[in-house]
Design a protein around this nucleic acid. Structure first.
Lengths: 111, 111
DNA sequence: AATTCTAATCGTATATTTGCGATATAAGAT
DNA sequence: ATCTTATATCGCAAATATACGATTAGAATT
């Protein structure tokens, strides 16, 4: 009982973990790459390229959107998605801060 | 049927996703931070600090080890863990490459 | 108004993750 | 030899994630 104890960690730890989680599936990595390559950002194009059903892609897009990594707007009958660069850079710089913080502290392995 | 279609994506996408997955839980983020702060790297100290049972911490350590982010060696009756800086930097630079690649391509949102 | 096209959502099956207590293992201390 | 002590592993329960087909909803086309 008392499962997912995530809330017992710091907000920063939770935020970083949530960001990592959003990227923890190859389909979502692939989606981010596609969104960057094509300016059109039409959902259907992603479905065409990925080896997944439309509903599954839609679900992955929703997760990326919930994590704040992408924005999505309805454009008539279709949906236009694009990377939320602001959030993306914020998270990636926080990751770098973590990396650098770790690296500076202790460059030599202890065991 | 035919679940986890992860193998249908590129190796790089899978590797990045696996790296992100290893960091996708606040407990594992916290463990990495602890390992960086303390040179001793003793498992028991992590258990003392985290709000999780010993067996659960051991499991998280195992996952980080399987992902290649940390090394662990047996030291008499206890286990010494430390960050695998080489793997860590490799992955973090691959992340940065992805970030920069994305950023250069398309700085302006399309929708 | 009926049809088509695009994308989201629902329902569902299966797989994986998370967490814990109990047990096993292995080294050190008594 | 026995008893701690430290950690890993096993077995299980609950939660979450992944995937799909079917359905729904809304806009554009006919």
């Amino acid at each position: 009982m008392a499962f997912h104890k995530k809330e017992e960690f710091t907000q920063k730890e939770q935020d970083l973990a949530a960001f990592a989680k959003a990227m923890s599936h190859p389909a979502r990595i692939a989606i981010l790459k596609i969104l960057a390559q094509r300016n059109e950002c039409i959902c259907g194009e992603i479905v065409d390229v990925l080896p997944l059903a439309q509903s599954t892609v839609s679900q992955h897009l929703k997760e990326l959107k919930n994590a704040g990594l992408i924005d999505g707007t309805v454009e008539g009958p279709r949906s236009c998605y694009c990377i939320n660069w602001k959030a993306f850079e914020k998270f990636s710089s926080e990751f770098n801060i973590l990396f650098n913080h770790l690296k500076v502290k202790n460059e030599k392995a202890c065991c």
